[in-house]
């Protein structure tokens, strides 16, 4: 399998490591077990594992050390999109504001 890193171009799988579901969100810093235990449990333990398109985090550790958000079909390994996680995260926080 190959991933097209937005900074390094098309690279072999051996340069990357997989982390998992990119849809989980770290609850806000001011939440606690008392105010939102479910949100923390979801964030730390619950992961979707769809058969089909999946948004997931990968790390280009043997390259530019970028974290990436990869949109991949888990059945075919077809990769539809690779974006820098920092860009996705910046949009996300921008959107939430």
């Amino acid at each position: 399998m190959r991933l097209t890193c937005p900074f390094c171009g098309s690279r072999g799988l051996e340069e990357f490591t997989y982390r998992g579901d990119a849809l989980v969100r770290r609850p806000a810093a001011d939440t606690s077990l008392q105010t939102d235990a479910q949100a923390w449990t979801d964030y730390v333990y619950l992961r979707d594992n769809p058969a089909g398109l999946h948004s997931e985090l990968w790390y280009h550790g043997v390259g530019c050390r970028s974290w990436l958000v990869v949109t991949r079909d888990t059945r075919t390994h077809r990769v539809d999109d690779v974006r820098a996680a920092s860009a996705v995260a910046a949009e996300r926080s921008g959107g939430a504001a």
Binding site: R19, R26, S66, W67, S86, A89, A90
Partner: peptide, 18 residues
């Protein structure tokens, strides 16, 4: 050593890119 490096990058790029 390698794991902490990846962890710091993760925290920065994904959790607190600002």
């Amino acid at each position: 050593a390698g794991g902490v490096m990846a962890h710091l990058e993760f925290c920065h790029q994904w959790l607190w890119p600002e």
